[in-house]
């Protein structure tokens, strides 16, 4: 055990040293250019998977091979997330103790707006995800916040995603240095290697989509937020974006952050922005 651990450590340091030696001097003065980023991001995936149409990417692992795609079509006939959509719909309509509802907290009464999240809130000066907005709504109305990883939060976001199905992702980055900084931090988080395995999000979701990690097929990073929240057979329940990110971090043998920490909200902002134009497909079902 000990030996294996030190070997892994050695492997990591050797790798890191080699990478350091190869590293080109990073262009410190690089301009933050989300429009160019999104264009390059899409081109990378369209070139890598020339058979897929843009809208195919939003079904995670199911976009990656035909056998899986068939499974997906079958699953969609009796979708395992249906109970969550129903539950979310009821919860959404039920008034808080003060008589108000979620609808009072959102534009268009919260219907068909999921594609606009996360958004940058200039009053709070930070990125607000749909999950955070829901809990802020609860707290503003005197209710206790929900857990970010399952249960009620998954049902509420499932319902809201369902009302946005097919609408193109539409994330705005206002002309505000704080918004640009949040976007850039999200991007940095996405590409930064971490954990004992020395993996970044990109190692799995850019370099290896379609490949297997244990029994799972890796989703491509393009459109990876469009299907959230998801029902996973392995979880035997629904999971939110927060739950997925915590799970992904643990898989690199890194200690996950706390749901809705800055890094997690910012990486969601980045990944959603570069998927602008691709349809919302959530809630999703996964093997």
């Amino acid at each position: 055990m000990m030996k294996q651990r030190s070997l892994i450590r050695f492997g990591f340091s050797a790798l890191a040293l080699a990478a350091l030696a190869l590293a080109s001097p990073a262009g410190a003065a690089d301009k933050i250019d989300p429009v160019a980023d999104a264009k390059a991001f899409k081109k990378f995936f369209y070139d890598k998977f020339p058979k897929l149409k843009p809208e195919d990417f939003v079904n995670g692992p199911y976009s990656m091979d035909e056998g899986l795609h068939k499974q997906w079509v079958e699953k969609e006939q009796f979708p395992p997330y249906e109970f969550a959509v129903e539950e979310g719909k009821e919860m959404f309509a039920k008034p808080f103790k003060n008589g108000k509802t979620y609808a009072d907290c959102f534009p268009n009464q919260g219907i068909g707006i999921r594609q606009n999240y996360p958004l940058f809130d200039d009053k709070q000066g930070k990125v607000i995800t749909l999950e955070l907005a829901l809990n802020q709504c609860r707290e503003a109305n005197g209710e206790a916040p929900y857990s970010y990883v399952r249960g009620e939060m998954a049902s509420l976001t499932a319902y809201m995603a369902f009302t946005s199905r097919g609408k193109p992702m539409d994330i705005k980055i206002p002309d505000d240095p704080r918004a640009l900084a949040a976007y850039e931090q999200g991007k940095e988080y996405f590409y930064t290697r971490r954990g004992q395995l020395n993996f970044s999000c990109a190692t799995c979701h850019v370099q290896s989509p379609g490949e297997r990690v244990r029994t799972e097929v890796l989703a491509p990073a393009l459109g990876i937020m469009n299907a959230m929240p998801i029902y996973r057979s392995e979880w035997n329940s629904m999971g939110t974006t927060s739950r997925r990110l915590v799970t992904c971090n643990s898989q690199t043998r890194g200690v996950p952050l706390t749901p809705q920490d800055d890094e997690y909200r910012n990486v969601e902002y980045y990944l959603s922005y570069v998927a602008n134009g691709l349809p919302i497909s959530g809630p999703g079902a996964r093997p």
Binding site: F12, S13, A16, A19, A23, K187, Y191, R193, R194
Partner: peptide, 23 residues
């Protein structure tokens, strides 16, 4: 030793992450 490796990783990634970026 593991903690020091993770610190080293974080510090070197401050620059290295850019090499992975899709441009």
């Amino acid at each position: 030793a593991l903690a020091k490796a993770s610190i080293y990783q974080s510090i070197s990634e401050k620059k290295l992450w850019k090499d992975l970026e899709i441009r």
